[in-house]
Amino acid sequence: MAVAHRTAHALPARRRPEGVWQKLVERIVSHTVLITFSVIFMIPFFWMVSGSLKTGQDLNAFPVVWFPKTLTLENYIAGLQVFPFVRYLFNTLVICVFSMIGAVLSSSFVAYGLARIEWRWRTPLFVVILSTMMVPFYVTMVPLFTMFRAMGWTNTYLPLIVPHFFGVPFFIFLLRQFFLSIPRELSESARVDGANELVIYWRIILPLAKPALAAVALFQFLTSWNDLLGPLIYLSDADHYTLSLGLTFFRAEYSSQFGPLMAASTVVVLPVIVVFFFAQRTFIQGITLTGMKG
């Protein structure tokens, strides 16, 4: 019995190194695969940035010159002289900021009613809201344009901002999932102290939902920043163009001038990368926590 007892304790000790090596190999393989795919996805961005700093000779050289032999800012100077970056940046920020505020406020308000208030039709309404996500934008594009034109909103920022103040289905879904994970005892304690639903929503639920709200805000900001179809439909005056729309017309007009085109593209993409770099922890935290409870 003593020998069997010692053998039973000796077997795991022998297997431990094998398990450690197996985990180490799995990590090496997984990290190698992830790094490989990351490098593949980074190649176009690296080519764009390096191309914006190359001379025309390096851009047209064969074989390909990956690293510029001579760094130059002529492409940025030439591109920004033709591409009104400051004006387009202001237009884009106006749309991004106001649509972000509208999406966060309206979606959180609707999600609170669906998650924290007991009433008869909340589940059927939630199903209807989710079903609208399955309707492609191309189906409602013409009716929306006709409606906004009748209202006199075309060639303004209103069609790109106002709809977000009436709730975004995807954000409503995310925030509802997060609100369900907040203990109901907090709301009940506040009701005992005399707080109404608006006070509970504003002073208790929203402060606890900062990670989810930050994720929604970042989602909406990136969506509005990269939106091309919306500004293309509703904006006709060049002074109202956004960065994505202005870059599209710049590319059509200066498609043969690769240096200034890469410089303008780098300037448009760089702010989004900076914003995501500083907000990635909050963004990932918000996305992770929204799926804690269904």
Rank of each mutant, 00 (worst) to 15 (best):
G246S: 00
Y157F: 15
V275A: 06
I204Q: 11
P183E: 05
A279G: 06
V192P: 04
F219M: 08
T154A: 09
L180P: 02
V168R: 06
V168C: 07
L261D: 00
S236N: 14
E188T: 14
R184K: 13
G152V: 09
F250D: 00
V275I: 14
M262R: 09
R281A: 12
H164T: 05
L247D: 09
D237E: 13
S181N: 12
L198V: 12
Q220F: 04
L160V: 13
L243S: 11
I205F: 05
L261W: 12
V268G: 07
P207G: 03
S187M: 10
L174N: 01
S265L: 14
P231D: 06
V268S: 02
L228C: 01
I172E: 04
V267S: 05
G194H: 02
L228M: 11
A252W: 04
Y241V: 02
S244G: 06
G167E: 09
F277M: 12
L213A: 00
L270R: 01
A190P: 03
F179M: 11
A279H: 08
V199R: 15
L206C: 12
R184H: 12
L160N: 15
I172T: 07
F258G: 13
F173A: 02
S189P: 01
A279W: 08
R203Y: 11
F221Y: 03
L228E: 00
F276K: 03
Q220N: 09
W153S: 09
L160W: 10
E253G: 08
F219V: 00
A238H: 08
G194L: 08
S224P: 00
V192W: 05
S189Y: 02
A238E: 14
R184G: 15
F277E: 00
I161Y: 10
P207A: 07
T156Y: 08
I204V: 15
A190C: 08
P271D: 10
F165Q: 03
I200T: 08
K210N: 07
S236P: 00
A195H: 06
V199D: 10
A217R: 02
V269K: 05
L247G: 14
R184F: 06
G259A: 06
L198P: 00
A214W: 01
L232Y: 13
Q257H: 13
S224F: 01
L235H: 03
L235T: 01
W153I: 11
V168E: 15
M151F: 14
V168K: 11
E188G: 13
W225L: 05
R191D: 04
T242Q: 04
P211M: 07
A264Q: 01
L206P: 08
Y234W: 12
M262V: 06
S187K: 02
Q257I: 05
G246A: 05
T223H: 07
H164Y: 15
R176L: 01
A217L: 03
I161V: 15
E185Y: 02
V275G: 02
R281E: 12
L222A: 04
A263C: 02
G194Y: 10
L261S: 11
W202R: 15
D227I: 06
L180M: 13
D239S: 15
S224C: 14
A212N: 03
V272K: 07
M262Q: 12
R251K: 13
L247V: 14
